[in-house]
Design a protein around this nucleic acid. Sequence first.
DNA 1: CTATTCGTACAAAAAATATTGAACAAAGAA
DNA 2: TTCTTTGTTCAATATTTTTTGTACGAATAG
Lengths: 181, 181
Amino acid sequence: MSGNEELAQSEERLRIRKNLIEAIAETMDLYGATHSSGQLYGIMFFENRPMTLDEMKRQMNMSKSNMSYAVRSLVESQMVKKLDEKLERKELYAAETDFFIVFQKFFSHKLQREIDVMMKAIDDAQPNLTELILQEHTADEERKLALQDLHKLRHAQKYYEWLQQFVDSLRNGEFFTNKAE
Amino acid sequence: MSGNEELAQSEERLRIRKNLIEAIAETMDLYGATHSSGQLYGIMFFENRPMTLDEMKRQMNMSKSNMSYAVRSLVESQMVKKLDEKLERKELYAAETDFFIVFQKFFSHKLQREIDVMMKAIDDAQPNLTELILQEHTADEERKLALQDLHKLRHAQKYYEWLQQFVDSLRNGEFFTNKAE
DNA sequence: CTATTCGTACAAAAAATATTGAACAAAGAA
DNA sequence: TTCTTTGTTCAATATTTTTTGTACGAATAG
């Protein structure tokens, strides 16, 4: 076979990959990731070995500092792991390729953050709202409005308690029980 | 009680609300919503009746066209409903205040979109990859690489089949069974 | 130890996104 | 019907986010 044909095949495989990488980036866009992070995850997903910043830079055709930022965000959302060993001084990063685990890590992380932010806000607000309602000199209309807000908070609190359980279940792998592995 | 005191109470309640609205906007930021959409949802969450674009504009202190865009994105992610009736020519919008329902609608919508995008990409890629592997004149090394990619796709496909079931369960309310309502 | 290379932080530049005001079609009051 | 008002779109502007180049501390090879 000619060198040209070999090249064509390799290009065909890379073309197929490129479409898939774009789809991955597009879905990650949905959850607030930058397009570049999404592409980078896609590249790392198909790469069959850990990558260095230099390789990312080369494949993404971007600056090393940007790769540093992008890979950090992937590590933070736990879709990529920084390995303990290095290769010729260079740090190594490997994508988690099991989407079940990605789902588990990504969503438990995001949802936990949401729970923490909202629970704190609710915990801060409730005593103040309660005091406003209880004060002798609070106008009736005002009390009524404050009470409505308080009830909304109590419902929200119930929800976040449930969501915490949901996240715990997710972390425990309870949703994956029927999965053939 | 003096008018000043009444004013102070109302301001206190609005201050408490403002913190909560900010927390809501912050958590919505996490999932790729714009900060303004998040704030708008927060405002609508506390408002005890449907709102018009003019009211949103007034409360958000922003242009009407921007409110039109913001509320549209909230309707699309199903956190806000456009009512059938109008008030004095103006369309009415109401926030879904039950976070359980918001969770259900928001995530089933996003995840379904992810499934559709990825399943399409996978379905498009698989036959091409398969053909590349099967072709007589494909170089061994190339075949090996294509095969690795194909296996990754098959795993991904398994995942998205599971995710589709997960979304179906979410839509059916299966995750809310233990919830006190 | 010294020299080299790596990864990150920072400020500047580039790109993408959000916001606005104006124009206009559609809805509906008069 | 005609006149008013609403909601949306579009192009422009403003703002935010992403990306880059550079500088520098930390790690490590020699």
